[in-house]
Design a protein around this nucleic acid. Structure first.
Lengths: 216, 216
DNA sequence: AATATGCCGTACCGTACGTTACGGTTCGGC
DNA sequence: GCCGAACCGTAACGTACGGTACGGCATATT
């Protein structure tokens, strides 16, 4: 290793390296297919030699890109779980809207396409990284909210994971798969807000405390 | 043109051609990545020249494969919409179970991965074909059931498409995206049946006539 | 000033793969 | 039994791309 600038899986990328990763993202979004090392080098105005020194190989570059984008998305923080139904509803709506905005963003679409393509061949963990930082990360962050809601007597469910998965389905519906397959589906700000509210209402209908407890 | 056996987009493939397409499917499922023309020819015990004569080029071969698999899945027929709640519930459960079985099958996963990978580059309509024969086909087939349920006073919704999308979300949840990204999620027969029943119950809770009408 | 380091730009290498071409074989029609 | 069409197996071609090597430049260090 010595003093080389090789970026390890855990290191923070430098500013220049982040610029390179942004170039990868922009190229992914615009060209989709043409994500070649030469194209990246040209877009980022760096040499291929530098790419290989920093990221090892193509896989390493892609993995670093996924992590970089994940770190950026993760930036949004969430408030403490609260005790009244209005705040709970707002929290859920916020989660839903954020999630819809993420999965409908061109960056997320391109990244997921890439990871899904690589999931076909075993030798690569891009899919795992995307799952870990997408689907599972949001699940982990929503869980305390759901459990706080249950503790406050606002929600009723046995397993928070199962409850979350229903919420996930009500929010996302067919949006992600349609976008991934190239359907021209556009979600504006107002549409996202409306869908988030609808999904939240439906979730509260299913798992709220007022009506009789659902679930077999 | 002349008497060549070139298969057009609308033609039915011959038995031998279907065998070739099955070889493509098996190769896709097993190898994922290694879907090369040479590998297909070897697996199908045919010459590459024949592949090109029959399917034009690689794109044509893949498109024919998608259509072939779609035709096979479409084989399942569905009964007439009925008028009592028990039959409606059974119809919905049947749809849900079928859909879960499809999206969790190795063939569907491999096919969707391929189509998603190709959706990144514009010049290909594999994604459109998959959408048309998957998501949209099932939507079209479920719609008469939903509308019959509404006409019979069992369901309440303004837009059958919107209602269907909620059903779609409640059934699929995070299953498809997790499988596409390589998550090791296995759905057995009993699990599918349980999930289908749960999703149907939840859908009926949201859109059934008995409780107050939901939806803003 | 001299040397070293880090990086850009580009040329280069090896390989994988889509596509084409061709010789040999099987088979239906005459 | 002969002819042509269809098809198999394989070799060959062209290209695209991952990865490497190298010359030049700019900045930092001594």
């Amino acid at each position: 290793m010595a003093a080389t600038q090789t970026i390890a899986d855990t290191d923070e990328p430098t500013a220049r390296q982040r610029a390179v990763l942004d170039a990868v993202l922009s190229l992914m979004v615009e060209e989709g297919d043409q994500l070649t090392m030469t194209a990246v080098a040209r877009r980022a105005s760096c040499s291929k030699e530098t790419l290989y020194k920093w990221f090892g190989d193509r896989e390493g570059l892609l993995a670093a890109t996924v992590r970089w984008q994940a770190a950026r998305v993760r930036a949004g923080r969430y408030d403490r779980p609260t005790l009244d139904i209005a705040t709970l509803r707002d929290s859920l709506k916020g989660f839903a809207a954020t999630w819809l905005a993420v999965i409908s963003s061109p960056t997320s679409i391109a990244l997921n396409r890439l990871a899904i393509g690589h999931a076909a061949s075993r030798k690569s963990n891009l899919g795992g990284i995307v799952l870990e930082n997408g689907r599972f990360a949001i699940g982990e962050r929503l869980r305390p909210v759901l459990e706080a809601g249950r503790d406050a007597g606002l929600l009723a469910f046995e397993d928070s994971e199962t409850a979350f998965r229903s919420f996930f389905g009500l929010v996302g519906r067919d949006v992600q798969i349609r976008l991934l397959l190239g359907d021209s589906l556009t979600l504006g700000q107002d549409e996202i807000a409306r869908d988030a509210a609808r999904a939240t209402d439906q979730f509260l209908t299913l798992y709220g405390r007022k009506p009789s407890a659902p679930q077999a």
